[in-house]
Design a protein around this nucleic acid. Sequence first.
DNA 1: TTGGAAAGTCAACATGGCTGACATAAAAAG
DNA 2: CTTTTTATGTCAGCCATGTTGACTTTCCAA
Lengths: 171, 171
Amino acid sequence: MADRGAADAMASGESLLFLTDEQLRRGIEAMFFACRGFTADPDRILRNHAYGRAHHRAVHFINRAPGTTVNNLLDILGVTKQSLNRVLRTLVDDGLVESHVGTRDRRERHLFLTGAGMALERELSDAQRNRMRAAYRNAGPEAVAGFRTVLEQMMDLDLRRHYQAAPEQTP
Amino acid sequence: MADRGAADAMASGESLLFLTDEQLRRGIEAMFFACRGFTADPDRILRNHAYGRAHHRAVHFINRAPGTTVNNLLDILGVTKQSLNRVLRTLVDDGLVESHVGTRDRRERHLFLTGAGMALERELSDAQRNRMRAAYRNAGPEAVAGFRTVLEQMMDLDLRRHYQAAPEQTP
DNA sequence: TTGGAAAGTCAACATGGCTGACATAAAAAG
DNA sequence: CTTTTTATGTCAGCCATGTTGACTTTCCAA
C-alpha cells in the first residue's frame, strides 16, 4: 500500500489525486539519475576534445537553428554573455563555429557550424540519440508518448518561448 | 510528415523502428529543458540559504537513507570525497546534518538530518514535488506511467545498483 | 601485529557560472 | 544630424564545485 506503482495509476484516473509523497519522490530521483545518465556519454566524448558541457550546449543549439544570433543563444541558454562568449570564442578559434555579420542588421552576428563543428555535433548527438533510442525501445511506444507528454509539461512551467529561433542567410 | 508526433507512435508498435533523428532530437531537447526546469525551484530556494546544488543532493540522499555512510554517499553522488567533504562540513557546521560514529564499525560515520536539516529538505522537496505533481496532473495518468517507464530505462543504462542503501542506528 | 579500509584534511588547479565596467559599431529615435 | 539604444565583445575578479595527489588518524580484520 505504501507504493501503488505506475500500473495502478494507469488503471484509474482518480488515482493521480492520491499520488503519495513517496511516489513523487521516486519520480524526482528518477529525474536526477536520468539527467546524469543523459549527460554521461557526451561528457566522456567532450573530455577527449578538451571541451565541456557549455560547448556542447552551444554546438547543439547552433546546429538546431543555424544562423541564430548571439542574443538568441543567450536567451535559450540562460547564461550571461561573458559566460557564453568564453565558450563561443574557443569554438570559433578552433574552427568549429563561424560568425557572420548580419545583412539586415550589421550589429548582429549569425552563428553557423563549420564542417568540423557539424562533425562534433554529430558525434555528441549520436551518443545521446543511441541512448534515447535504447530507452525508447525498451520502454515501448505508449511509454514514449507519455514520456514526452510529461516532459513537455515540466518544461512549460518555465520556458518554451525560446523553442523556435529565426535563422538568416546561409553562408 | 516531417513530424509524426507522439500520437502516431502510440498507434502502431512498429513506428518505433522508424523514429527519426528529428524525433529523437526533440526528446533530447525536452530532457535538457526539463532538467533545467526541474532544478529551477530548488536553486532559487538554495540561494536564499547560501547553499548550492551540491548541498541539495547531499541533503536529499541523507534524508532518503538516514544513517547512510560517507562511502555510500560518495558512491551515489559520484563525486570525490574531497568534493563531498567540503559540502558535508558546512552542513555539519551549520547544524543541518549530524555525523555519528558507527557501532558495528567505528571507522564509519553515519549521517542524519537534524530538525533544521529536515526543514530544509522539506522546503526543497516540496518545491520539486509541487512541480512534479503539476506536470503529472496536466499530463494524465497514462502519460505518467510511460514517463516513469522511460526514465527508468534511461537510468538503467548507467546506475541503479546504488538505488538502495543500508541504514544503521537511529540516534 | 600488520595491512588495508573509512574518513578527514591540505594544497593546487580547471571549469563555468556570476558581476561590474567599459569599448565599439550600428541602428533607431529625436 | 545628434543622441540614445542595442548587439556584441572584452577585461578583471569572485564563487561554487568538480578534479588530483599526498598525508594522517582511526580502527577492523587477516
